[in-house]
Design a protein around this nucleic acid. Structure first.
Lengths: 340, 340
DNA sequence: GCGCTTTCGGTTACCGGTAACATAAAATTA
DNA sequence: TAATTTTATGTTACCGGTAACCGAAAGCGC
């Protein structure tokens, strides 16, 4: 591997001079600079960031801890985040927790040993607070994305779950639905709590009763395992008057799984039942706008999250905590129908 | 930041002993080991990989250079790759080239300065060969994914573009289509060449004429800019006999754009025209299987790619070049119809 | 041409680990 | 119990950069 010393020897200067040329620091005679640059080019030298970070105490690397990069919502966040990072000269280490606390801990370890300058994280649950503390104990700032956690002090960038939820439910009510079920994610995630709050309040505001068995929680692994079917089946087994005419799926992942379950149960959407959900179900939306959704500006979330994070890393605007909550766009499409 | 020296002082041993405990190397008395481990835990020490990599000459980090992580095909590759990487104790640096050669060069620079142990890359074109050479000049192995490039020596993992293309076109012919247009990606990408070859050979085998203006090329940026419409419009303006009854979109990105264009032109799929494409159009496929596609095992590709890469990095199975070509699954769905 | 300031470049030490060697302590053998 | 081997730990130097300090050369005023 070519080092600064090889360049120094070739250009007949000291390693320090090479370092100065690379970093454009100090006073260097033009002739010397050119000599060094020639040697660098000829030997194809690229600085070793590991060595650099040892003295500079920064790695120019950020950690991105998300649930699952193959979920379109998160892959858009990742894309926005990565774009913002390279633009500012940072690299991004990626990871997928699958909402698993143990995996999350391992990734925190990884970020710690990689000495990343900061972490943008969608925490798996409120328990993640301890992990964020571990980061800050090592002087590594964290910005939350998509979710908050209780007791967190710092910046976060979220979609407005409460408001989106309200609007989706209002839309259903507007269409004449009175029996609306909510299939939610686990309530230890803030988005689930907010969506449930929006759901409940909207029902209350419209004087609609809340049936307890309309609300179910289903976690990432159950959805993956295909356990949504029993949840849906239970809902549909309620007797006629109580049988929901609409399902509010709390995210795209659940929505897809619900659709699958409905299909297996022989039910048509929207003829037999209406379905709405949070997050866009891409990319088909462009040519077959089917799903009525609360679409979050995912790539924007990622971009802003990284910007905040880098400002924290570089000690700018550190006085205030910034809580950004971006409103989702409600797209009314064909998965909901008016009740006669 | 806590270092090995802090631990050493606290545990009243030499730094070297701490190092040995951490790496489980050499002979350490049980009592000493426990003393050190206690100190590590109490101070929350995590080894600094940068310092480590300086002596070990490896970073346990791999580079992943893809077109666009927010494209479901690539996000699945990324997921498979990242999974395989962590399982083997590696980290992953992500990047998005947008098929842009300049961006790709910058990312290669980034990988070089990060001293990644290896790179898994979907090259933007045959020109990328020089960049891969830059990597190998620095002893960094590269494995290709999704695409090959001319003159490349090493491992690659691809989907079978030729075979998938043949099957899609055969399906269309089987359905009675004789006028089949191909909207391809740029021919400096191997998949485009292979898909075109499959297209042409299948037509020839079935004694169908090849109209020159049935084949068009459209690059990533044009698709992004929404320039697909003019291409599609030109096809549809051909006089009746020559007007295509089916379009073969060479990838999911093009397919979505084609669908959009058709919609704007007021054409229905599959009533007015049939459409097939390469790559799955997820995730809607699960509940609304619409598109007839050649689905590539993306996550498998990513996983195998990383496995090969790590073997190269760790100098295992290096004698032979491995060329893996996985067959796509053909899913016949509702975007194609039989001609009467 | 002499002293003073500025410019340019070199030397040394250190960042946080670890390989290689050295040495002290314990265990084993004769 | 002395000699020998084995085990346990310490010391030194180095990985590839850079900060901090220092000295030589060049520019400048008089």
């Amino acid at each position: 591997m070519v080092t600064i010393y090889d360049i120094a020897k070739k250009a007949n200067v000291s390693p320090m001079t090479v370092s100065r040329v690379i970093n454009n620091s100090g006073n260097i005679r033009m002739a010397t600079k050119e000599k060094v640059e020639k040697a660098i080019k000829e030997l194809g030298y690229v600085p070793n960031s590991a060595a650099r970070s040892l003295t500079s105490n920064q790695t120019k690397t950020l950690g991105l801890i998300l649930t699952d990069i193959s979920n379109p919502f998160f892959s858009k966040i990742a894309r926005g985040a990565e774009d913002a990072a390279v633009e500012t000269g940072y690299r991004v280490l990626m990871s997928n927790t699958d909402e698993d606390f143990e995996k999350e801990i391992n990734y925190i370890d990884m970020m710690l040993s990689a000495r990343v300058d900061g972490v943008l994280i969608a925490p798996t649950s409120d328990k993640t607070l301890d992990q964020i503390k571990r980061l800050s104990d090592h002087n590594i700032p964290a910005v939350l994305i998509d979710r908050t956690i209780e007791g967190f002090v710092g910046d976060y960038v979220l979609g407005d779950s409460y408001e989106g939820s309200r609007k989706l439910v209002e839309h259903l009510i507007d269409y004449g639905h009175r029996n609306i079920a909510l299939i939610n994610g686990p309530s230890n995630v803030s988005t689930a709590r907010e969506r449930q709050r929006g759901y409940l309040e909207t029902l209350k505001l419209n004087d609609l009763p809340v049936h307890e068995n309309y609300i179910s929680e289903i976690d990432f692994k159950s959805v993956q395992a295909g356990n949504t079917k029993s949840t849906v089946a239970q809902l549909m087994q309620l007797n006629d008057k109580k049988r929901p005419t609409a399902i509010f799926a709390a995210n795209n992942f659940i929505a897809i799984s619900v659709m699958k379950a409905l299909k297996e149960l022989g039910l048509q959407v929207p003829e037999d039942i209406s379905v709405v959900c949070f997050d866009e179900v891409e990319p088909v939306v462009y040519f077959d706008p089917f799903f009525t959704v609360a679409a979050q500006p995912a790539s924007e979330l990622g971009r802003i999250g990284i910007q905040f994070l880098i400002e924290r890393v570089e000690q700018k605007n550190v006085e205030q905590e910034r809580k950004i909550i971006l409103p989702p766009d409600i797209h009314i499409r064909k998965s909901t129908r008016r009740m006669e």
